[in-house]
Simulated assay, not measured.
Amino acid sequence: MSVRTGPTAIFQIPDQGVTAAGCSNVWCELGAAATEPGAVTAVALAGILALLAFAYVRDAEAACRGERRRVLDERDAFESFADRVAELDTVSVATDSTPSGVPAGALGGIGAAGGGIQSGGGPAGGDVTLRRVLAAYDDTVLSLSHYRDEYDETAAESLAAELGPDTATALASDGGLSSGTQSALVDRSRRAADARDRLAGAIDEEITELADRETALSGIDRRRKRLLAHLEGVGPGRETDAAIDVWNRLGELKRECDGLAVDRQRSLDDPPLTPDLHEDHERTFYGYLYGPADGPRYPVLAQVAELADRIRADRDEVGTQVAADR
């Protein structure tokens, strides 16, 4: 996902406002706003009437949809692998056979097209059931383009990483697919599919929340635009009263932004899923979704901050106009 960098202003909650100590009326507040270092000395509303693009949230939603598709593809691939392994013939294993003496890397020499077993653990040329297991894995999980691109692992390496090194070790030790190893592979593959199904559901929840937040932000931004457009169309003699009303209403919009930010913080503290990603940072679900992206780690908060900054700037400009008309 490629998005722009975040706004320079830090979003503070709650907004402390511009009211000085002992200042209790709108004229005092407006005077304070007009003397803020960042306040302009002339009102030029025409250039700020356009609606914001909300690129952070929209790019985040697109990234989530793409990740959800990949997760569902992986779910389907593991289900297919489990089905294919369940249909394979198994081999008998000697009662004194133990997987502990054979490293998981012993499968490394077996490919979809055949080949021997490295480091011992089976007959020369490998057992046909071993080749069939790895061929099934290659045709299902590793057939996903993103899987190969991201992990660059052999079938044996990926199988050990996804389903446990002991399963690869057992395959090599048994010299083929034993009934016990078959059961373990099928069970773990279905669990891997279930885990991805749960993850896809959590991503769905995030997509829904992103859409809801964008709707709320768009509504605030439309009202911001209408207020400014209304102010431009006010007739002579009513400019000051209209500007004060718009200034107050912009303050209400800013408080709505504060509320949206607080709500989003709650969501961040209570994610729909807490995956074990082995990452040493907080909020791993959101780190998983947005950490690899070029944009902000928390796109909704960045978007709220951008809108709040825009409202604050508009309000300063309106306040400057009112102070100049007094």
Rank of each mutant, 00 (worst) to 15 (best):
residue 3 V to K: 04
residue 3 V to Y: 08
residue 5 T to D: 13
residue 11 F to Q: 08
residue 13 I to T: 11
residue 14 P to T: 14
residue 14 P to G: 05
residue 15 D to Y: 01
residue 16 Q to D: 09
residue 21 A to K: 05
residue 25 N to G: 13
residue 26 V to P: 04
residue 27 W to F: 13
residue 28 C to Q: 13
residue 28 C to M: 06
residue 29 E to V: 09
residue 29 E to Q: 13
residue 31 G to S: 12
residue 36 E to V: 08
residue 40 V to M: 03
residue 55 A to M: 09
residue 57 V to A: 11
residue 61 E to T: 12
residue 77 A to H: 05
residue 78 F to T: 07
residue 80 S to D: 08
residue 81 F to L: 09
residue 82 A to H: 07
residue 86 A to R: 02
residue 86 A to D: 13
residue 90 T to F: 02
residue 91 V to N: 06
residue 94 A to Q: 02
residue 94 A to G: 07
residue 95 T to V: 14
residue 98 T to A: 08
residue 103 P to Y: 00
residue 115 G to A: 11
residue 116 G to R: 13
residue 120 G to V: 01
residue 120 G to S: 10
residue 124 A to P: 13
residue 124 A to Q: 01
residue 124 A to V: 15
residue 129 T to M: 04
residue 131 R to I: 14
residue 137 Y to M: 04
residue 140 T to C: 02
residue 140 T to D: 04
residue 142 L to S: 00
residue 142 L to F: 03
residue 143 S to C: 07
residue 145 S to P: 15
residue 146 H to T: 11
residue 151 Y to D: 08
residue 156 A to E: 07
residue 157 E to T: 12
residue 160 A to Y: 06
residue 161 A to N: 08
residue 162 E to D: 09
residue 162 E to N: 06
residue 163 L to T: 03
residue 165 P to K: 14
residue 168 A to L: 12
residue 180 G to T: 11
residue 190 R to L: 12
residue 195 A to I: 09
residue 195 A to F: 14
residue 197 D to T: 08
residue 197 D to E: 15
residue 202 A to I: 01
residue 205 E to K: 14
residue 206 E to A: 07
residue 207 I to Y: 04
residue 210 L to K: 09
residue 211 A to E: 05
residue 213 R to D: 13
residue 215 T to A: 15
residue 216 A to N: 08
residue 217 L to D: 09
residue 219 G to C: 10
residue 222 R to C: 05
residue 224 R to F: 04
residue 228 L to I: 10
residue 229 A to F: 07
residue 233 G to W: 03
residue 237 G to L: 09
residue 245 D to V: 15
residue 248 N to E: 02
residue 253 L to M: 12
residue 257 C to T: 10
residue 258 D to Q: 15
residue 260 L to E: 10
residue 266 R to Q: 11
residue 268 L to W: 07
residue 270 D to E: 14
residue 273 L to F: 13
residue 274 T to A: 12
residue 280 D to S: 15
residue 284 T to L: 10
residue 293 A to K: 07
residue 294 D to P: 06
residue 300 V to Y: 02
residue 301 L to Y: 06
residue 303 Q to W: 10
residue 306 E to F: 01
residue 309 D to H: 03
residue 309 D to V: 07
residue 319 G to F: 00
residue 319 G to Q: 00
residue 320 T to V: 04
residue 322 V to C: 01
residue 324 A to V: 03
residue 325 D to Q: 13
